[in-house]
Each structure stands twice: as structure tokens, then as C-alpha cells.
């Protein structure tokens, strides 16, 4: 069915915009659903995914890295949206888990006079790192451990190994940038969502507790 839809889009190029938009919205809903405790999670995930993925896709098309056709644009956007979704999900989940696990540390930092961004900085750093580790490992090991899909697809489609490698490298570097930006954007959105007036951190409860609730005495 997806194949038939894409064939239709190839015949009617303006439909490509709608198709890519649907991809981004579904990715945002999927990723945001993983951190639904956070107010506005789906909207934040949509922005964190669509902004870097579509922005970088646009730049790649504008600079002539790929043809400005649905045949090139849709797979490129798809790869980047998929990568951004993975990074946003990993980063978001890790950060929300850390807000629970390290609530006492966050409280200690706030009690010592840190503002919220400073108090949450170690958690954000770990979460963003977690989010981009897969693409970093993929980039480092490409050709040694795995032959990535783009490379294999191009070879099977008849491209020369040199052309396939050049395009794959472009995609990998773009993915690296997009995933880093997606991780940063979702982390900043979560930080903003849990920041309450008076330099406080309030995490909507998953089990009746919140980050600043000591749950004692």
C-alpha cells in the first residue's frame, strides 16, 4: 500500500509535501507518546523532529546534494525523520527517567542556589549523549561492522561503490547533525516543561510522586 502511495506521489510531486508532513506528524506523535507525562510532549517532539530533519533535508536539496524530486526528497526526509525520532525518543525517555531517579540530586543543587538550567545540566548532558550514541557508533563503524541501507540500496540499484559511498557519507553526516539537534531540542523542551516559577522543578507524577516531592515527614 505504501509502495502504491509513493508511486502516486512520484506521478504527482506536490503530494510529496503532504507525505513528508504526515511522516513528521506520525514521528512526533510516536516519540511524544513515549514521554506523555510531560505536558505538550507530542507537540514538543514534533518540533524537535521536524525542525532539524526537514531543515537539513531542505539544505541538502538546495545545495544540490540530491535531486529536487520526490524520488530523492522522500527517502532523504524519511531517513532523517526516522533518525530524529529515534534520538528524540531515546533522549526524552532518558531525561524523564533521570528526573525521577536523580530527583534528590536536583533538589540538592536547587537548594544550594543553582537555577533550574544549571541544576538539570548534568541530566540533560547524559540524556543527549544517550540519544546520539547509536548514530555516533553507526558513523564510526560504517563499512567495518555494517554496510548501511543507503549504501546497499544504491549498489543494488546499480550505482558505483564510489557514488554509493559518497551519498552514504552525506546521509550519515546529516543524520549525525539532525539527531544531535533533535536530542537537544527535546531535552530543552522537557526542561522548559518541568520548570515551575520560583526556580523549581515539577515533574508530573507517574506514580504519585514528583521531582521535588521528598515523600517524607
Amino acid at each position: 500500500m505504501v509502495g502504491a502511495l509513493i508511486a502516486l506521489i512520484f506521478r504527482h510531486p506536490p503530494l510529496a509535501f503532504a507525505f513528508v508532513a504526515v511522516m513528521a506528524v506520525v514521528a512526533g506523535a510516536t516519540s511524544g507518546g513515549r514521554i506523555r507525562r510531560i505536558p505538550g510532549a507530542r507537540r514538543a517532539a514534533l518540533v524537535a523532529i521536524a525542525l532539524p530533519a526537514l531543515g537539513v533535508t531542505g539544505v541538502l536539496l538546495l545545495v544540490g546534494a540530491f535531486e529536487v524530486t520526490p524520488r530523492a526528497a522522500i527517502p532523504t526526509a524519511g531517513i532523517l525523520i526516522g533518525g530524529a525520532m529515534a534520538a528524540a525518543t531515546l533522549t526524552g525517555r532518558r531525561l524523564v527517567e533521570a528526573l525521577d531517579e536523580r530527583a534528590d540530586e536536583v533538589e540538592a543543587r536547587l537548594a544550594l542556589g543553582d537555577d533550574v538550567p544549571t541544576a538539570l545540566a548534568p541530566l540533560v548532558r547524559v540524556a543527549v549523549t544517550t540519544g546520539v550514541v547509536p548514530v555516533i557508533d553507526q558513523t564510526r563503524s560504517v563499512g567495518l561492522v555494517t554496510l548501511p541501507g543507503t549504501f546497499v540500496g544504491l549498489l543494488l540499484g546499480g550505482a558505483s561503490p564510489a557514488t554509493a559511498a559518497r551519498i552514504q557519507l552525506t546521509v550519515l553526516l546529516a543524520l549525525l547533525l539532525v539527531e544531535l539537534l533533535a536530542g537537544l531540542l527535546i531535552a530543552l523542551a522537557i526542561r522548559r516543561a518541568v520548570t515551575a516559577p520560583g526556580e523549581r522543578v515539577v515533574v508530573p507524577p507517574a506514580d504519585g510522586r514528583s521531582a521535588t516531592d521528598p515523600g517524607r515527614g
Binding site: 534528590d104 540530586e105 533538589e107 540538592a108 536547587l110 537548594a111 544550594l112 542556589g113 526556580e199 521528598p214 517524607r216 515527614g217
Partner: peptide, 12 residues
């Protein structure tokens, strides 16, 4: 929070 400093029960 610097003028009214808190020491938690299980300090981190």
C-alpha cells in the same frame, strides 16, 4: 536558598 539553607535527610 542561600540565605535559608537546607540540609536534606539523605544528603546527596
Amino acid at each position: 536558598r542561600r540565605r535559608v539553607a537546607l540540609v536534606a535527610q539523605a544528603p546527596v
